[in-house]
Amino acid sequence: MSDHVSPVSLYITIFTALMVLTAVTVGAAFVDLGQFNFLVAMLVAGFKASLVVWYFMHMKYQSHLTKLALAVGLFFLVILLGETMIDYASKDFSPMPPPISSDAQIQKR
């Protein structure tokens, strides 16, 4: 069996990249980027996850079938997240639902 054995230097490089990206995501959180704070945080996390999947989890060396299986799973995750958020964004949900009745109001009744 000819499984690919990654060099130790590659693992060290990926580990270093993951640590640097963690510092980047913490640093970016302290900068006011408005709406982009969330986007940056998720892009960095997505990139970190990709590094782990591709190199630590050896996806790079797997068969097309295994890669396809992962792609299909991620596709359904995108549907789950994307279409739910589209649904909530496009329907007439109040930004502050449901109206919170405070304890004080309940006691008055």
Binding site: T22, A29, F30, V31, A41, V44, A45, K48, A49, V53
Partner: peptide, 22 residues
């Protein structure tokens, strides 16, 4: 084990870094 690590990679910014500036 790597999968569990990946879950934390997302949980960390989502839970700890919602809005740290201010």
């Amino acid at each position: 084990w790597h999968f569990v690590d990946i879950v934390w990679i997302f949980l960390f910014p989502l839970l700890y870094l919602v809005e740290r500036h201010q």
